[in-house]
Design a protein around this nucleic acid. Sequence first.
RNA 1: GGGUCGUUAGCUCAGUCGGUAGAGCAGCGGGCUUUUAACCCGUUGGUCCUGGGUUCGAGCCCCAGACGGCCCA
Length: 500
Amino acid sequence: MSEVDNESDVVGHRRRKLAALRDLGGAYPNAFRREDTAADLHARHGDAAKDALEAASVRAVVAGRVMLRRVMGKASFLTLEDPSGRIQCYLRRDEVGAETYQEFKDLWDIGDIIGVEGTLMKTNKGELTVQAGAVHLLAKSLKPLPEKYHGLVDQETRYRQRYLDLMVNEESREVFRVRARLIALMRRFFDERGYLEVETPMMHPIPGGATARPFVTHHNTLGVDLYLRVAPELYLKRLVIGGFERVYEINRCFRNEGLSPRHNPEFTTVEFYQAFADYRDLMDLTEELLGSLLDEIAGGRVLRFGDDELDFRQFARRTMSEAVGDATGKTPSEVADPEALAALARGLNIAVEPHWQWGRLLMEVFEARVEESLVQPTFITQYPAEVSPLARRSAADPRLTDRFELFVAGREVANGFSELNDPDEQAERFRAQAALKNRGDLEAMHYDQDFVTALEYGMPPTAGEGIGVDRLAMLLTNRTTIRDVVLFPQMRPAGSEEAT
RNA sequence: GGGUCGUUAGCUCAGUCGGUAGAGCAGCGGGCUUUUAACCCGUUGGUCCUGGGUUCGAGCCCCAGACGGCCCA
């Protein structure tokens, strides 16, 4: 322990108190058992009349962290917080004993974890309170809590020391309760529909399933580099080939890209696959899923998000070409013309690469001009094949695929398509991606022979989709920063030199 | 990567024209047996993010850097 030199006065005082507590027989006992929670006591007795409650002499045994203290000479009030909420406790010297009361006054602090056994009462102001018969210090807190009224505001500290944020900011706790509920509801949704929950590898010998830069790691015994997965897609499709015709996975993906209010290098998706279905079935399913999530969590299908009111009662569906045409005022034939699109892209300050074809140009213009304007839930369909190397081509136009993405509040929330199950065409698409990679495109896909081999055994016609869980959580908790919905967001190490 | 704003006591924040740093809460000492952001009296506490520079003098001005927020790419 080398912190003695630089510890603050507060910590010094508390360490002395801790030493005194140790002398008295221990400051970290583990024998106390809570019998009642704050919320439960409020629910059962919050409405009771003062006299009736005292006449009933209801025993209560609570435990939690001391959040507030109002100390008088011979009696004190404490506000105790447990995971369910807060409950006030009342300590009278004459009831807990002079020795204990003195110990409480001298050695206990805000932030300590304590247990209180006593009887329920109501104060003159009508607040339900545990009148203590016995009190126990259960864990000494050596560090001062953030300010009792303003809480912890500093965003950097809230992210770096999330436990402090959770300790003092109820809104922050609520965000993560909603997130947990969201995930539980999604599990139930897929389980009820016969999808099998599976876990596929996080470490891939060949990164695949999305166009994104991967993290690289190394397996010592095998002597090979492995990639943290950018998507589980190719493994989930192998499972469909194996006969698990409905599968889903809720877990982390990793992408080696910048940090932003919308991007954390590790993020959570739910990805699901269903044989004998196409992308339209998945759009219907997505509407059903989001609708039911909103019903359960937001209590209805209209959601307040920032200044917007998002209406999930109806989802728009438009093709990418239509959306680009509307946003740019171009005619369908202009949108279908690579030269016109290239000119449009340059006009938007997009660094157009000479090898980009029509599809890539359309996608780039879409991302630059349309994406952010899609506030109400909107499916954009018919993505170009050039930017969709795993998706099935549209029967009507081979330049397009039966793919969609869902946008809400200007953010991509879901991406799904009818799967490409022709092994020869998949091989061809991989070759095109590999060619891009050779040109230096760090996000292009690798050629995955093992996956092509799997396809050669025959994959039933299938549709698959991924939904960004963090982004859903942001929508449902009205947060504009992914860091607010990730418990421990990635941060630059404090005070480090910048890596080159 | 660029722009911009921020970083001051444990926390939340002030800090005038460049003149030697403050408040509230927390802490410490005292008082108070129904308080509730308890209250009353007294009081401790500072690497003003870091490193340079300008100046008689820098929390404040200039330069570089770190970390964070926001905007853009």
